[in-house]
Write a protein that binds this DNA or RNA. Structure first.
Lengths: 217, 217
DNA sequence: CAGCATCCGCTTTGATACTG
DNA sequence: CAGTATCAAAGCGGATGCTG
């Protein structure tokens, strides 16, 4: 992109990361850590492959992304955020929080990848019973399962399937999110195609971080 | 801009404010509150007038900006952020903080407007002697003077000249910022064209909010 | 297959001119 | 003052081809 040519910190930031796709590449790397080119392309449906290559070069030049040659037997290029790139987290979280209300309308033509939920869940959920032993709730939605881990007062999101989840929640993403946020109860969620297997108490363990209405999405 | 078409809060945000110029328009409205079309164009050097009109329409449709018809004798259109637009402040501040280190290299071809300093100064300065009576320091740089007001532990930036400033600091923007942050003392700053009039104690009253090195810019 | 580069049609942007 | 109109140039999206 052409520089704004302004002596202003905001404009300087946008000179580096204001291009189309740039911040979504950062999102992918924040959620998934080191990624192959192919993983990035998969997580950014619709990006033209030459643009992905261009953006990665630009982000590398801006010290946001670095490229690592993984040693054999992997023997592939991995892309990763630099420390400077990690410092974009407040920006990404700001956009995430601002965008949550926009998720209330579900567009059936939108693409979806389950790992995109990671940030939103981490930001809006909390462990409601910090003193009890940790639990894992698997969400089956979108392309692959993800796992909400609650323990010690913290919420973490795993992108690898848990070996022994305490509960498994299956259904469309928006309904699942409403269930884990406690905005929709399980019986009411059934009509949206949500089903549950396992110990129902894990659903009470995980709840909204803020009053349910404020970050409804 | 074409929608990313992703069921993701970050992508949804960028669908609305990810266009070129959009966040800079938000910046202008955050710094200056209600603005005329002409003021916006002045604060966004290089924007094509048709683009400004387009962006304002898009931001209005996104409930970020609203348009007010000022009554006579003003009789002009004013643009203002909606409450939803105001909620972009964490995003803007995130970009601002991330961009501060980029300001260490000064590009002589960059345009400059003194009101762009408002956010950066507010974010990085603090009142070093909260118990003393308020002071005002005028900065003469760029297109028009701005005023740093320190009092009650708070820092505020005024875009209207103070009627009776306690000190007046004149010079290039980068050097002035370094002086008020205490990274450069007045005698050393003279070689960069900085001069001062008034009560020197006001310079000690205003200082960096964080350790000087961390947000050096 | 992973990681690009090239080509082409379309859309967006930038610069300028013009208008109520 | 607050835009619209026009047009060339740049950027983007999609398809395809190349290389280790």
């Amino acid at each position: 992109m052409r520089s704004y040519g302004e002596h202003c910190a905001i404009a300087k930031s946008l000179d580096l990361i204001g291009d189309r796709w740039s911040l979504l590449i950062v999102r992918e790397l924040m959620i998934r850590d080191a990624c192959r080119y192919t993983d990035l392309k998969y997580g950014l449906p619709g990006i033209a492959t030459n643009l992905l290559a261009d953006r990665l070069r630009e982000l590398e030049a801006a010290d946001v992304v670095k490229r690592e040659e993984a040693p054999p037997p992997v023997a592939t290029t991995l892309f990763r955020l630099t420390p400077r790139g990690e410092e974009l987290r407040p920006v990404i979280n700001g956009l995430l929080r601002w965008g949550l209300p926009l998720m209330r309308v579900e567009n059936p033509t939108d693409t979806f990848r389950s790992h995109w939920l990671a940030g939103a869940l981490e930001q809006t959920l909390s462990d409601q019973r910090p003193d009890e032993p940790p639990v894992a709730l698997e969400l089956r939605t979108g392309d692959r399962p993800i796992v909400i881990e609650a323990g010690g007062g913290e919420i973490g999101i795993g992108l690898q399937p848990a070996e022994q989840p305490d509960g498994i929640l299956t259904g469309p993403p928006k309904a699942l999110v409403e269930v884990v946020r406690g905005m929709l109860d399980l019986s009411a969620a059934e009509e949206f195609g949500v089903s549950f297997e396992g110990d129902r108490s894990v659903l009470g363990r995980i709840g909204p971080r803020e009053p349910a209405g404020s970050v409804a999405g």
